[in-house]
Amino acid sequence: MTRTRSAEEKALRRRERSIAALEPWRVNGGHPLKVREMRTAINVLLAAKGLPIKACSKCHKLKATSAFNRYKSSDGFASYCRQCNADTHASRMATEPAYAERNRVWSLAYYWDHAEERRQYSLDYHRRNREANMVKNADRVQDPNVMKRCKGQCGRTLPETSFRLDRGNKDGLRFKCRDCADSSRRARTACRNAYGSPVGQPCYLCQKTFTSEVKVQADHLHPTSLGGADDAANLWWAHEYCNINRHARLLTPEEWDRVRSLQRQAASAPTQTKEPTP
């Protein structure tokens, strides 16, 4: 009888301890990961077993460690998963002006501090790709039975024989067909002879001033695919990105007024940088 009562008392005490341990879960919504101590204990246990799993402190879900950013913590990972971190950042950017301004200043400083590294990385990346493409396309020839879409203003789908070889590109061909490439060359010469160098002049689409001639194109105001000519009256300088995004879109009246004003100012300038004659 005594032994039975003792077993019953032990079971009762065990039950009471279990209820006491579960009480923080009930207080915090019935979820063990909402209790910081329990969440830490679970993360330590998972790490000790060598499992690549971690509990997020924000959404209270078990996720793979690949879903967390690296951080200088005891386990080497941030407490929030990437999704929760992104949601929190977006919410603060929308509701806290001081936080948004601090991030804007930091982003600009980081961008310019690492501009040279980014430029060098881009140059190395494209150089490696071009060298690999040169090897891959060493025996490349145009196949008249294979079609390719021109990325120039014509936008036509033509046989590969309509494109010049450029073995440094991925497919071994130039992006523009022969007609568009020749038209671009004539347009650039005519635009330079009429309006001078693009440096110091604005792009008529984004209105930003050119600081160099890199990735600057002479854009046809009236697209060549719609009958536009290569004469100076139908040309003005544009960034390569702006020109590609515009494609064959017709200009708005505001854009026409802007580009005509730019043409008149450039034509009346006292000094012109002409294209050297061969």
Rank of each mutant, 00 (worst) to 15 (best):
T4L: 08
R5V: 09
K10S: 08
A11D: 04
R13Y: 12
E16Q: 14
W25V: 06
W25H: 08
R26A: 10
N28I: 00
I42L: 11
K49L: 09
K61M: 13
K63C: 09
A67C: 15
F68A: 00
K72R: 14
S73Y: 13
G76A: 14
F77T: 02
R82A: 04
C84Q: 05
A86W: 05
S91C: 05
A94Q: 13
E96T: 08
A100H: 07
W106P: 03
W106R: 12
W106E: 13
R118G: 07
Q120D: 06
Y121N: 03
Y121M: 07
D124K: 15
H126Q: 14
R127Q: 15
R130V: 08
A132N: 12
A138Q: 13
D143C: 07
K148L: 03
D166C: 08
R167E: 09
N169G: 07
L173S: 04
R178G: 01
R185E: 13
A190C: 04
A194K: 00
G196M: 02
P202I: 01
C203I: 02
L205I: 15
T211K: 01
V214E: 13
Q217K: 01
P223N: 10
G228P: 02
G228A: 12
A229C: 11
W237Y: 10
E240C: 02
N245C: 05
L250D: 11
R260W: 03
L262A: 05
E275M: 02
P276I: 11
